[in-house]
Nucleic acid binder design. Structure first.
Lengths: 163, 163
DNA sequence: ACTCCATATGTTATGGTATAACAACAGTTG
DNA sequence: CAACTGTTGTTATACCATAACATATGGAGT
């Protein structure tokens, strides 16, 4: 397990840092990072991959933080709507944001081998799509950009099947 | 109802033309455009918008063409895998392709006012996303590009609330 | 004609994702 | 304290999708 940038890194550290950043952000913006919401963000950060709402719910249940789907979905809605997490439409799953604070339109690279997800940056209002939208008189408010393919690790594994 | 390019057009004609084109393509490529598959494509073309699998299924049922979900899903799988239709991940719905034959990576403009969907063309392997993927060593095989926003008609309606 | 095989359809059952609707409670503001 | 806002808890249900197996249908080869 070493997704996101498809590289290894100090995971323990990044979880804590992201959590602290989220807390600071919420304090600054008068947002209520309740125990459930905080824990869901932590779970997403720890998992460091796309997780289904019911995966999350299983953890919450085990910890006595809520037993019904709406509990998980509400926490996820909060995180997504404030930019702490994103939904991967293609997977019906959620993932912690790797650069919150930064105003960004996320794009995802989803590996079909290991399901790792890396977050990149897109500018949907530019390029061909932006031009097409402008021509059609369409106002883009939000965009889902998800590329499916194979991450470097899985490509390597396929070329050199030494396992 | 006048989606796709967000403009009015001779709908009757485009349904027939698209259906004829699909038939020709299937004949040429030895694909089996069975009654169910043909009818599902026709429904998508007639509806001219994103339709859920169960919407489709309701029609099929009413026409005695199949009563269970797999019937609809299988026909949709066929159409999608041969490029006659696309799945809109964001809506969990399907839409007829507006330019089959052409080899293309579809991108969609989805209006949150009227749910109309226009199909544009994207080149995910270029631009920022392509660069990010190349840097990460990620090989893009397929891409989902879906922009949400407001179509010209709904924008107009909002500015001049004369209804 | 008959068997074999591939493809397509039919059906049952189930699994996975998501939300509506309402009840209860906490904090805070006037 | 009363009214309000926001959060959580719970029930119930709706919606989306597929696994698994049974049944047909239509060639290809003999």
């Amino acid at each position: 397990m070493d997704p996101l940038g498809f590289e290894h890194h100090d995971h323990r550290h990044c979880v804590h840092a992201a959590l602290a950043a989220a807390e600071a952000h919420c304090a600054r913006h008068r947002l209520n990072l309740t125990p459930v919401r905080r824990r869901v963000l932590e779970l997403l950060l720890e998992g460091h991959r796309a997780m289904g709402a019911y995966d999350i719910l299983d953890h919450l249940r085990a910890e006595g933080l809520g037993a019904q789907p709406p509990v998980a979905y509400r926490a996820l809605d909060f995180l997504v709507s404030h930019g702490f997490a994103h939904k991967i439409e293609r997977l019906n799953a959620f993932i912690a944001c790797t650069h919150p604070e930064t105003d960004h339109t996320p794009a995802f690279l989803i590996c079909r081998g290991c399901n790792a997800v890396a977050e990149a940056h897109a500018e949907p209002t530019r390029g061909m799509l932006g031009r097409a939208a402008a021509e059609a008189g369409f106002e883009i408010e939000q965009a889902v950009v998800e590329a499916l393919g194979r991450c470097p690790n899985c490509r390597k594994a396929e070329e050199a099947p030494c396992a």
